[in-house]
Write a protein that binds this DNA or RNA. Structure first.
Length: 826
DNA sequence: TTTCCTCTAGTTTTT
DNA sequence: CTAGAGGAAA
């Protein structure tokens, strides 16, 4: 849990590593307290061929052992990419080429970094201490910046702003420029700045046209003003965590040189996702002066590049060989995940893209009993959800764990239908990627208190909480204070301390502000000597923040209090409040509860890197997938990215992949009839079967879809002529919309779930319906209960795990007992 | 200050 | 349609 930079010596105290000599013996490892390198060496010495190399195929092994010089590993889905990366690091360590602190290993997400640490630990036998430079681009950026902040005009205790802070800040700037913040939304400009920063553009380099496009042509001025404001706040946004180090390195070649010496080996995960700024950062660090080997290894898959829309440049991976002359390119094509049908379908689909580096996944685990990829047609999204639910239940009856199944959607609105259905069925599910814990209102408020205690100059935090809970400090007072602070160039909290000594404010506001200032003074004085969790609780109590939610009668209030408790709990793992704040600003991910058996529902984007026995891919319709906007805004390359997304979806499946399309979908409230996705036509018949629908309608054979519905003739185009396909097509054309109820043999029961109000989600961002149990209900009629969505109510009747409840506010609803908690009768 | 109403926009997401 | 934001009224 490092919260800074001073815990790692800049250069190792140990002697410089020697070049390994073939067959050289390494001295036996002494007992306890071994460094990672020593342990790795010991592990290697146990066998002639190091253990860690034994299970690798020849290509993987080559990727692991080609440690010197630039290497690009093109690792297709399920080909053991992470394994190669981690084994490679273990190998570098074990062969005595570098110390752990001389390896730079970069990932995109914290999750990936964590996983790598863990797996290296396994390989080397023990926890990985001393890999200080394994982390995300951003966390490594922070580490560099904390060390050299003064070189870019910051002080090393700078704050990291998240998107929410940034938007509020930009809004102020837009208003300060005298622009209408409704006509020029701060959010949009924040996105523009983010985009520019992804491209490595400082204000001067933003193309004229782009800069003029915002704020009556004032885009550039606004960007400058924003950067200035950040500097006065001693703050960075996420983009700066990359750009500042780049600037720093460019302006200080001596510093860059130090890092060149330090980082003997550089590894990059998910290279296809790097944006221009990351690419610049990497080249600065990786490209060495003549004669020095560039030990860079980038691992990626151009076919899985799905983040172009947020600045990723597939081109980075495509031109690796130009950037690093003499680079070795190793393709990993042997797939260990999926059946031949799944690979065949995915491979045929992705072959429709141009400009690929070209890989074909194969497996030799061929089993004639393997299912083909199945394409299903449904009348509308409701039927789609119902049918998927049935399939899941059927698999469940065959003892397949729900954890092995996932529904991967293109857009998050599609999730709702599945959630509704699963709640009705009492089927456990979890939603991955919902609102994040640290993005919740109450968490952000609490964090603002903590930030302000640790960093009295954090004006954004100050503004967020001065009047939360309500203290009668309205707009006018704040504006006053703001001007006062600006005029004197001091932080707002300091300004508040000053202004209460004057008579500039009304007595009421003055008193309120006085209380705030004294509270913060007190908390700051406690910061060093009070256990931080205790202090945190104290802050939330004394500020009246907890009381505010206690008094709040709304349905969400108890959940929010619970989240605050969870926040305090999660602080325990940290040494100090500062350490905790640093962690939170970078690590925004929530963990899922692995112990629960549940179907996962997530977007295709968040599914990258995961795998499931069975994957359901609903919503393969033109306009949704490929998404209309991707086509409109991205043209050909937009379509190709969508296709890669489809590829990612299919290759998540190990054994079973079910694709769905519907004929009617409600978009923006109105029903629209839809066409099957062109991607369906791009699947190879040999690996695909069309499901016979159990429903009894249709069969007219009116098939408007022949060959080449969308594209010019393409070599892969094929027209399905199987009876099943024809029927599926006919179904979607001729079905009548009276399928409410039991047509598919399943009693449809609607329970209240669809009115406005927040979605019921647990702190992990999961919504979990308890499965039907045979146990007697833990509730009885008349109990007073609380429901996250509907609030308080009394139980009117009970059937199994389904409760009928008279809610105080929402009226009578039927809900599953897993969604309510018993409360004391009031 | 709160509540209610109107308006608007509406893929994908990490850090 | 529907969630969220912002403005107007109580």
């Amino acid at each position: 849990m490092s919260n800074g930079f001073d815990d790692i010596p800049f250069f190792d105290e140990e002697p410089a590593p020697r070049k390994p000599v073939a067959g050289s013996k390494v001295p036996p490892a002494p007992g306890a307290g071994l460094g990672i390198a020593a342990r790795a060496m010991a592990a290697r010495d146990q066998a002639r061929m190091p253990d860690y190399l034994s299970g690798l195929n020849p290509e993987q092994r080559e990727a692991v052992e080609s440690v010197d010089g630039p290497v690009l590993v093109l690792a297709g889905a399920g080909t053991g990419k992470t394994r190669v990366l981690t084994t490679r690091i273990a190998h570098i360590l074990a062969s005595n080429r570098a110390f752990p602190s001389q390896i730079l290993a970069v990932t995109f997400t914290n999750k990936a970094a964590r996983e790598m640490k863990e797996r290296i630990g396994h390989l080397v036998g023990g926890a990985v201490e001393g890999m200080p430079w394994l982390g995300t681009f951003h966390s490594i950026g922070v580490k560099l910046l904390r060390r050299h902040a003064e070189l870019v005009g910051l002080s090393s205790d700078f704050t990291i702003l998240d998107t929410d802070d940034v938007v509020r800040l930009i809004k102020q700037i837009i208003q300060a420029e005298g622009l209408d913040d409704k006509r020029w939304p701060a959010k949009q400009f924040a996105a523009m700045i983010d985009g520019w920063k992804n491209k490595g553009l400082d204000p001067a380099r933003v193309p004229e046209g782009d800069a003029r496009a915002f704020g009556n042509g004032k885009g550039r001025e606004l960007y400058v003003a924003y950067q200035n404001r950040l500097k006065t706040l001693n703050a960075c946004d996420f983009g700066d965590l990359l750009l500042h180090p780049i600037r720093m390195f460019k302006a200080n070649p001596d510093v860059l040189k130090e890092y060149h010496q330090r980082f003997r080996y550089i590894l990059v995960d998910e290279y296809q996702d790097t944006n221009t700024a990351q690419y610049m950062w990497l080249r600065l660090l990786a490209q060495r002066p003549e004669g020095v080997p560039q030990n860079v290894c980038c691992v990626g898959d151009d076919d899985q590049s799905i983040y172009g829309w947020r600045g990723a440049e597939v081109d980075n991976i495509l031109r690796f060989e130009k950037d690093f002359p003499g680079a070795k390119v190793i393709k990993l094509e042997r797939n260990y995940r999926s059946t031949e049908h799944i690979l065949g379908a995915a491979g045929h689909l992705i072959a429709h893209n141009e400009g690929r580096l070209g890989k074909t996944l194969f497996t030799d685990r061929i089993d004639p009993n393997d299912d083909k990829v199945v394409v299903h047609a449904a009348w509308d999204s409701e039927e789609e959800a119902r049918a998927v639910g049935e399939e899941i239940e059927q698999l469940q009856r065959q003892q397949h764990p729900l954890n092995d199944m996932a529904i991967l959607v293109r857009a998050s609105f599609q999730m709702r239908e599945f959630e509704d259905r699963f709640v009705t069925l009492g089927l456990n599910y979890r939603v991955i990627g919902g609102p994040r814990f640290y993005e919740r209102l109450e968490i952000r408020d609490a964090m603002a208190y903590f930030r302000l205690v640790c960093q009295p100059a954090d004006d954004l935090a100050f503004e967020r909480i001065v009047n939360t809970p309500k203290r009668g400090l309205g707009d006018t007072t704040i504006r006053n204070l703001h001007d006062y602070a600006r005029a004197r160039d001091i932080p707002m909290l300091a300004a508040a301390a000053d202004i209460i000594e004057t008579d500039e404010l009304k007595p009421k506001a003055r008193k309120a502000l006085f209380d705030v200032v004294t509270d913060f003074r007190r908390w700051q004085s406690l910061l060093e000597n009070t256990p931080h969790t205790e202090l945190a609780e104290q802050i939330l109590d004394e500020s009246g923040y907890t009381a505010m939610w206690h008094n709040d009668k709304s349905a969400e209030a108890p959940g929010r209090l619970e989240n605050l408790k969870e926040l305090i709990r999660s602080m325990e793992a940290f040494e100090s409040m500062r350490g905790f704040l640093e962690h939170v600003s970078l690590v925004m991910d929530a963990e899922t509860n692995e112990n629960l058996d549940a179907v996962s529902i997530m977007t295709l984007h968040s599914a990258k890197g995961l795998e499931f026995e069975t994957v359901f891919l609903p919503g393969w319709e033109e306009g949704l997938f490929p998404h209309q906007r991707a086509l409109d805004e991205g043209g050909r390359s937009g379509l190709e990215e969508e296709r890669r997304l489809a590829y990612v979806g299919i290759t998540r499946a190990k054994r079973r992949c079910h694709i769905w399309f519907v004929s009617n979908r409600r978009i923006h409230g109105l029903w629209q009839s839809t066409l099957p996705s062109r991607f369906l036509d791009e699947l190879p018949p040999a690996h695909v079967e069309v499901a016979e629908t159990e429903t009894s309608y249709g069969g007219y054979g009116r098939n408007p879809y022949g060959q080449s519905r969308f594209d010019k003739q393409e070599p892969f185009q094929n027209s399905y002529s199987t009876p099943g396909w024809k029927r599926a097509q006919a179904n979607r054309t001729d079905a009548t919309r009276d399928n409410w109820g039991t047509r598919s043999g399943h009693a449809v029961e609607r329970i209240g779930y669809g009115e406005s109000g927040p979605r019921a989600k647990t702190i992990e961002g999961e919504l979990v319906a308890k499965s039907t149990t045979t146990e007697p209900s833990r509730f009885s009629v008349g109990d007073r209960v609380f429901h996250l969505k509907f609030g308080n109510g009394n139980i009117a009747s009970i059937e199994g795990n389904k409760l009928t409840i008279d809610f105080d506010r929402a009226g009578q609803k039927r809900v599953l007992d897993g969604f309510v908690e018993r409360v004391q009768a009031s």
